[in-house]
Amino acid sequence: MNDSLIYLAWTVTKILAIVIPVTISVAMFVYAERKVIGFMHSRMGPNRVGPLGLFQTFADVFKLIMKEVILPTSANRFLFILAPLITLAPALAAWAVIPFSAKMVLTNINAGLLYVLAMTSLGVYGIIIAGWASNSKYAFLGAMRSAAQIVSYEIAMGFALVGVLIAAGSLNLVEIVEAQQGGVWNWFFLPLLPLFVIYFISGVAETNRAPFDVAEGESEIVAGFHVEYSGAPFAVFFLAEYANMILIAALSTTLFAGGWLSPFPALIPDHSLWFFLKTFFFCFLYLWFRSTFPRYRYDQIMRLGWKVFIPITIVWILVVALMVVQQWLWWAP
């Protein structure tokens, strides 16, 4: 009894030790986004609340929490409130298996990759339910777009991950990282280059970010699935979206960029700081895309997913399988 209580308390502490920093990084990420995009647009970005505008996001969150939660009269009240929670929960839950370093991982399960895949796919339900429950044509269009988009990119993403697990020979995220040991040339992004590129682009598409943000489609369907949301539920959608972005960046780091491994192990030791640095780089790519590219049209996204990405991933999986079978693995330790 006592043991299980301690175990429970310890687990909750570990969960909090991940969830709270993730939430804070979301706040900082939003700030970074506004600042980085601001500089790319030759303007200042937020600089009024707190030193250098650092507290801007917190001010925004407080504002959103203070706002009234408007329930549209014809909306399904239960689903309307449930939807943002369904989006947020998997976005945070997926962090359980991310290894920050060889020892720093909440649950080191063997089916880590599958778990991640399952969790990131669950988020779409929140979006569909939100679009349905709002009972608005704009929200419904956004939900439909999002559902189609996420389902088709999930496939390309899944195939890309198959390549990783063939190369690493494991579904365990820690082991996948350890399979990439030996410096920057052994990281999977090199032998799996097409899969890496497709994985990250699919990740951008899956998180509904520019240039794939048709589900939100600011200038077409106004805000898409969350057009009817206000106040705290909107903030939750926001939080989930950014948590997902950081998650995809962290996954790209883990699967393709050697996680916590140092690029030059002979010179600099491995450290979890490497993990954060690489994640930061991928997050930056998100912002860079957003400030540069125009938005795809809905059917063009589908074409890209089905006609370009899926064939390439299938071919490259065969190539990787051949490399493994024929023992052409320069990266294998």
Binding site: H41, D213, S219, R290, S291, F293, P294
Partner: peptide
């Protein structure tokens, strides 16, 4: 069409 930067330039 989603190309944000141009607006500010």
């Amino acid at each position: 069409l989603g190309a944000m930067a141009l607006f500010l330039y």
